[in-house]
Nucleic acid binder design. Structure first.
Lengths: 211, 211
DNA sequence: CTTTTATGAATGAAGG
DNA sequence: CCTTCATTCATAAAAG
């Protein structure tokens, strides 16, 4: 199957990608990729975008059919925060940015205008509110933390630049992390890569009636 | 429509990505990325994977509903494959203290000097570095976690009595009788959907007819 | 090999 | 702003 092959390839790419992130040989500021690796990455992401697009189209088509049949299911949505008994059910106590919110925030942050500025916070909050629950405090805190941690990261990078293990190259795609023997290779402190847990409340909302 | 919004965001992602890859000057053999760019990349890829997965789930559920209503769309339906082990996206490696390092850390911790203190962290790191790979961040995190978990253990000891009910958990932010084990295990399914996995077989199967 | 547990790391929020 | 805490996620290690 052609698509299956594509997906397999994507998995490989992802793992490779992680090795790049993970194999931080100490405190370097930069990662180095070959053109070929870059090209693979680009194609991988394009593939994902295409798949997402197709899936969305598919979904829309299907819901349209349901509409025609008068079987629209969207109304069954019910807020998961409240049960019929009236007491709270599992809800996140703390705000978690949705992927879209995060993207927007990062964009703003990268624009260098490191000025949170009371008024700007308000605007940003309004914009982000279109993509999920959020408050001005959340935005404010996010910028505070983002800056502080960005700064700290750089300082850490400086401190241990001298030591350097043999660069963790990634030539053998076949030999993957699943090998227990490779434990020794991850001696390098590699806490650089951030946790990624993406939540899509937008999608979750769509899917609530599925539970 | 929420899905439309998602797609917009995805396009943004792609454009950014191409900016990163972008300036293919032609002669260079390597590209250089900052850690931050790397992190962004990672997030984008994970986000794509998650969205794909969620879209597939959504589609599967909808198709199932249609089945129930006798409206099955024939060729669209794909028997859900036996969930072959989904591959995780995140493959970050993490530091593991050597027995020697652990011993030293525990000793310092038991000395009651609960204040890690920036300078002290440095010293400790230097000392521990003689017994294995380590960074200041590792030491910092270790003390943070050690303290937090030591604290939590004590609180758990107190709450032997009112254990029977499982519903009144989230109400008292102050008292925090947190039963660490049980809380996160009974989270609802929607939240677990935030985990980032690639389930390629399903995706491929569902996508088959789109070609 | 699969499931469970222990724990390193990430991060939203609060305090100063 | 910077530091600290609490909570949560993800994974190495242990248990089955």
């Amino acid at each position: 199957d052609e698509l299956l092959a594509i997906m397999e390839w994507e998995k490989q790419e992802l793992q490779q990608q992680q090795q790049l992130n993970g194999g931080d040989g100490g405190g370097l500021y930069v990662k180095v990729m070959t053109d070929e690796q870059m090209e693979l990455l680009r194609r991988q992401i394009s593939a994902y975008a295409t798949i997402c697009e197709q899936l969305v189209e598919m979904h829309k088509a299907i819901t349209a059919q349901q509409d025609l049949a008068g079987m629209r299911l969207g109304n069954i949505y019910c807020d998961s925060l409240v049960t019929s008994a009236g007491h709270k059910i599992t809800a996140r106590q703390r705000w978690t940015p949705t992927p879209m919110q995060l993207q927007i925030l990062e964009n703003i942050f990268d624009q260098g205008t490191g000025t949170p500025s009371k008024q700007k916070i308000k605007e940003i909050t309004i914009e982000l509110a279109q993509h999920g629950q959020i408050s001005e405090t959340n935005v404010y805190n996010w910028f505070q933390n983002r800056r502080a941690r960005s700064k700290r990261k750089q300082l850490v990078g400086v401190s241990n630049n001298a030591e350097s293990e043999a660069e963790t190259e990634m030539e053998s795609p076949k030999e993957k992390k699943t090998k227990p023997e490779s434990i020794q290779t991850h001696e390098n402190a590699a806490q650089r890569a951030g946790n990624v847990y993406i939540q899509s409340p937008e999608l979750s909302a769509e899917m609530h009636y599925l539970d």
